[in-house]
Computed example of a mutant assay.
Amino acid sequence: MKIDVASRRRIEIFELRLRIELATVKAYDRVCQPESPLLYINDVSGRLSLVIGLVPHEEIMEAVGLVRLAKHVYSRSSDILHGRSSMVDAPGVIIDEWRTIVERLEIIVGAQQPADSV
């Protein structure tokens, strides 16, 4: 079965949103070192701020900018996926930019994706 371009992009948007959620869990685990793992993902936007605690002092401003960008990507991707946006599809160039942001986030939290992921 062949997937059309628009559907493929929505899948990519969903994947990026999920990767942000997983990165927040990893950041939470590394910063808070809880006795029990998170059983569900909530307050993704708030938990993204924990990423700042994972960088050296001299990289804090860059991390703050990255967290802001990741929050934007998460919010916009959610709007697209939940139909709250007039943009029901995102151009490939935007998805590529979002992917770069998510990859930078994953590097900081130590949750890099395998090379053969989507």
Results as ranks from 00 to 15, higher is better:
residue 33 Q to H: 11
residue 33 Q to K: 15
residue 34 P to Q: 07
residue 35 E to W: 11
residue 35 E to M: 13
residue 35 E to I: 09
residue 35 E to S: 14
residue 35 E to Q: 11
residue 36 S to G: 07
residue 36 S to E: 15
residue 36 S to Y: 13
residue 37 P to R: 11
residue 37 P to L: 10
residue 37 P to G: 07
residue 38 L to D: 06
residue 38 L to N: 07
residue 38 L to F: 10
residue 39 L to V: 12
residue 39 L to S: 11
residue 39 L to G: 15
residue 41 I to K: 03
residue 41 I to V: 15
residue 41 I to Y: 00
residue 41 I to M: 04
residue 41 I to N: 02
residue 41 I to W: 03
residue 42 N to R: 13
residue 42 N to I: 10
residue 42 N to K: 14
residue 42 N to H: 14
residue 43 D to S: 14
residue 43 D to C: 10
residue 44 V to F: 06
residue 45 S to H: 09
residue 47 R to F: 08
residue 47 R to M: 11
residue 47 R to G: 00
residue 48 L to Y: 04
residue 49 S to P: 00
residue 49 S to N: 14
residue 49 S to A: 14
residue 50 L to H: 00
residue 50 L to P: 00
residue 51 V to G: 03
residue 51 V to L: 07
residue 52 I to L: 06
residue 53 G to P: 01
residue 53 G to I: 04
residue 53 G to W: 04
residue 54 L to Y: 04
residue 55 V to E: 01
residue 55 V to I: 05
residue 56 P to W: 05
residue 56 P to T: 05
residue 56 P to L: 04
residue 57 H to Q: 15
residue 57 H to I: 09
residue 57 H to K: 13
residue 59 E to K: 14
residue 59 E to Y: 09
residue 59 E to P: 02
residue 60 I to K: 15
residue 60 I to W: 05
residue 61 M to N: 12
residue 61 M to I: 08
residue 61 M to G: 06
residue 61 M to S: 13
residue 62 E to A: 15
residue 64 V to T: 05
residue 64 V to N: 03
residue 65 G to H: 09
residue 65 G to M: 08
residue 65 G to I: 05
residue 65 G to L: 09
residue 66 L to N: 01
residue 67 V to F: 06
residue 67 V to C: 05
residue 67 V to G: 02
residue 68 R to T: 09
residue 68 R to S: 14
residue 69 L to Q: 09
residue 69 L to Y: 07
residue 70 A to V: 02
residue 70 A to D: 00
residue 71 K to V: 04
residue 71 K to C: 05
residue 71 K to N: 07
residue 72 H to K: 14
residue 72 H to N: 10
residue 72 H to S: 12
residue 72 H to W: 12
residue 73 V to H: 00
residue 73 V to T: 04
residue 73 V to N: 01
residue 74 Y to P: 00
residue 74 Y to D: 00
residue 75 S to W: 06
residue 75 S to F: 11
residue 75 S to H: 10
residue 75 S to A: 12
residue 76 R to C: 03
residue 76 R to L: 08
residue 76 R to G: 00
residue 76 R to T: 05
residue 77 S to Q: 01
residue 77 S to V: 02
residue 77 S to R: 00
residue 77 S to W: 00
residue 77 S to P: 02
residue 77 S to G: 04
residue 79 D to S: 12
residue 79 D to C: 08
residue 79 D to L: 08
residue 80 I to Q: 02
residue 80 I to N: 00
residue 80 I to K: 01
residue 80 I to H: 01
residue 80 I to V: 15
residue 81 L to M: 12
residue 81 L to R: 02
residue 81 L to Q: 04
residue 82 H to S: 12
residue 82 H to R: 08
residue 82 H to K: 08
residue 83 G to Q: 04
residue 83 G to A: 06
residue 84 R to T: 06
residue 84 R to H: 13
residue 84 R to E: 09
residue 86 S to Y: 15
residue 86 S to H: 12
residue 86 S to L: 13
residue 86 S to Q: 12
residue 87 M to N: 14
residue 87 M to V: 09
residue 88 V to E: 12
residue 88 V to G: 11
residue 89 D to N: 14
residue 89 D to A: 07
residue 90 A to D: 05
residue 92 G to Y: 07
residue 92 G to T: 08
residue 92 G to M: 08
residue 93 V to A: 15
residue 93 V to H: 13
residue 93 V to W: 13
residue 94 I to N: 03
residue 94 I to Y: 10
residue 95 I to D: 00
residue 95 I to R: 01
residue 95 I to M: 05
residue 95 I to H: 01
residue 95 I to F: 05
residue 95 I to A: 03
residue 96 D to T: 10
residue 96 D to V: 07
residue 96 D to A: 15
residue 96 D to K: 13
residue 97 E to C: 08
